[in-house]
């Protein structure tokens, strides 16, 4: 016991410097992140702005019940999960593939041009992007016009007004906007690869695919894992702005997700308690998923975020 204490003190001394560096960081995180977390109490009381939280009527889990019991709850859950699963699969792999493809380009100039243009859509605000998408995909839009002209279809496809197209459209539009942007991360991670490793591999007769498989992927794996675990934690986030510009009344049954619902009722109607309750629910589920995924990744891939 005494021995153990001694060891701990010794190791603490060694790490004194690191702890010292941590102090300001801990103060920061407490002030800017943990203090406002006290506001989560709002989810359990009938909150009116301007009133002290302690004076508000305590209602327990009322707002959680209200949310789960609302007639569109199952629809919200279905839409949220469907779209975030699409993002976590198709939308997740796309930037990795894109980064790999860019990496394989031989012409340095072309590579730079592709890289610098690929993220442009990210900077177009959703409002502007929305009106462009309308011009492209509406019944009279450019896409339908081309399809009609080359005879692939007889009647315009109602991409924007038929609910069943919505999830796919949402995924594609998100990919258009974010693939280049998210790929920056992987491209930067790849640039950390030690060229000597590749040279050594070449000597052993490694093919291009082999280089990707045995050198590049292992290097970016920690980055992929971080992205993946965080992505899983956000499974109940399935876009917000996108739906306000891509969605319309006729497709509402397919786009209305937890966040748009909580915005309409929580923020617009001023029920902050409801909004907070929904947010808290999402957080708890997110943290549980992160914890489970992290455990899995540590077991199977030997990489984890904590």
């Amino acid at each position: 016991m005494k021995e153990k204490m001694k060891h701990m003190i010794k190791s603490f001394n060694k790490q004194r410097q690191l702890w010292l560096l941590c102090i300001p960081i801990i103060i920061w995180v407490v002030v800017f992140a943990y203090v406002p977390m006290g506001g989560l109490i709002i989810a359990f009381v009938d909150y009116i702005p301007g009133m002290s939280i302690f004076d508000c009527e305590f209602v327990g889990l009322k707002y959680f019940r209200d949310f789960v019991m609302n007639p569109t709850f199952l629809q919200l859950l279905r839409n949220t999960l469907a779209m975030s699963l699409l993002s976590l699969t198709v939308g997740f792999v796309a930037p990795i593939l894109f980064a790999l493809c860019v990496n394989e380009l031989n012409n340095k100039k072309f590579k730079t041009v592709v890289q610098t243009t690929s993220y442009l859509p990210y900077f177009i605000s959703w409002v502007v992007a929305g009106s462009m998408i309308f011009i492209m995909l509406s019944n009279e839009g450019v896409v339908n016009d081309i399809l009609l002209r080359i005879g692939l279809i007889d009647a315009p496809v109602p991409f924007l007004t038929e609910g069943k197209y919505y999830w796919v459209m949402y995924t594609l539009v998100n990919m258009w906007k974010a693939t280049g942007w998210s790929a920056i991360l992987y491209i930067s991670a790849m640039s950390g690869i030690d060229t000597q490793l590749i040279e050594a591999g070449a000597v052993d007769g490694m093919t291009r695919l082999g280089v990707v498989r045995y050198v590049i992927l292992p290097t970016i794996l920690p980055t992929i894992v971080v992205q993946w675990i965080i992505g899983i934690g956000g499974i109940l986030n399935a876009g917000f702005d996108q739906h306000l510009v891509l969605g319309n009344a006729s497709t509402q049954a397919y786009w209305d997700v937890i966040d748009t619902y909580s915005y309409r009722y929580g923020i617009q109607l001023g029920y902050y308690s409801l909004g907070t309750a929904v947010g808290l629910m999402k957080s708890v589920i997110g943290v549980l998923l992160v914890w489970a995924t992290n455990w899995f990744c540590r077991k199977k891939l030997d990489t984890a975020i904590f």
Binding site: I26, V35, P36, G39, L40, S283, F306
Partner: peptide, 20 residues
């Protein structure tokens, strides 16, 4: 790590942040 990871998922929301 955990101290910071928690902040990724839990936040007070609009009003507490503003009051802070």
């Amino acid at each position: 790590r955990i101290l910071f990871l928690i902040t990724m998922y839990f936040g007070g929301g609009l009003i507490p942040g503003y009051l802070l």
